[in-house]
Design a protein around this nucleic acid. Structure first.
Lengths: 155, 155
DNA sequence: GTGCTATAATAGTCAAAGAAAGTCAAAAGT
DNA sequence: ACTTTTGACTTTCTTTGACTATTATAGCAC
């Protein structure tokens, strides 16, 4: 007998498979009620099973009419992109290295030259304008996050 | 089942789309009656969904024959839109405001949805992960810099 | 007619209540 | 040790309503 976590995961994955657009909207509280657990259990499942590196995106809104939206990334180069991030972007990233990586993405046709211009301008030390070593850490987060965002485009 | 807020927003946007001049005049009380809510609900929708950084202007007059006029801002050229965005960035920039501006760029066909995903992920508070108020300053620098990159890259 | 005033007809403001989801760490399983 | 479960507390967004401010108009005095 699987645990709750797995049951909820299974349930959500079935629902997503049923939907046409690889997308599902739920209400946290009512899903929790259906499984007889506390709402934060749902949050836990989303964090552990539907993270970006597992190929999912999760969006939400609070307040009246609030919801949680789960989107399955379906991009043909998704795996390639994920590997790229995991292999090349560590905890810190210098500007030179970032530039090389972005150029590599253009060469591999993962991003357009225009996208690379946008990304490079964000990664520039004059834009970041904070002190080292924090700057190189921020740059790593930025590139990682922007590359992940590319996965979203298949949606 | 969307919430009231969203319904009213949809309704108003449809009405504006129908009108020729990107402009709509309503009476607050009668619109409220139509949706069965209090008049201040309308005010709330206007504040949260028809702000300047979403590309709208709202004018009104009280008293007999009073009205609320919603105007969708139109721009002649991409440069003009980018200038508008640039003007609205300021020295600090909250995430909400940044999102509105980037979405405006998509709506005006200045950037692609994919480019907007890249930009929004860079502007996200979890990516920046530094403390306020420095975070809002950094976000302003980032968006400004990315907007310049788009300007330079031409169309 | 002109100017003043009262009244009615609007819209604006603000804070409280309500309705979600998020966070975080302790407890419980494995 | 690591993962899962729970729950108290926080944050965000929406809805409501009492009170305030502004504008037009009708009626009146002159």
């Amino acid at each position: 007998m699987a645990n709750l976590c797995d049951e909820i995961e299974e349930f959500l994955k079935r629902q997503i498979a049923k939907a046409e657009q690889n997308m599902l909207e739920i209400q946290r509280a009512s899903l929790a009620e259906r499984f007889g657990c506390v709402p934060s259990q749902i949050t836990y499942v989303l964090e552990t099973r539907f993270s970006v590196d597992k190929g999912y995106l999760v969006e939400s809104r609070r307040g009246g009419g609030g919801f949680i939206r789960i989107i399955k990334i379906t991009h043909e180069s998704a795996e390639e992109v994920l590997d790229f991030v995991n292999l090349n972007i560590g905890r810190v990233l210098t500007q030179d290295k970032a530039k090389n990586l972005v150029e590599l993405l253009v060469e591999k046709n993962i991003i357009t030259p225009r996208e690379s211009d946008i990304m490079l301008s964000a990664l520039d030390r004059n834009t970041l304008a904070i002190e080292l070593p924090e700057r190189d850490r921020l740059r790593a987060r930025l590139l990682r996050s922007m590359v992940y965002a590319i996965l979203r485009s298949g949606r």
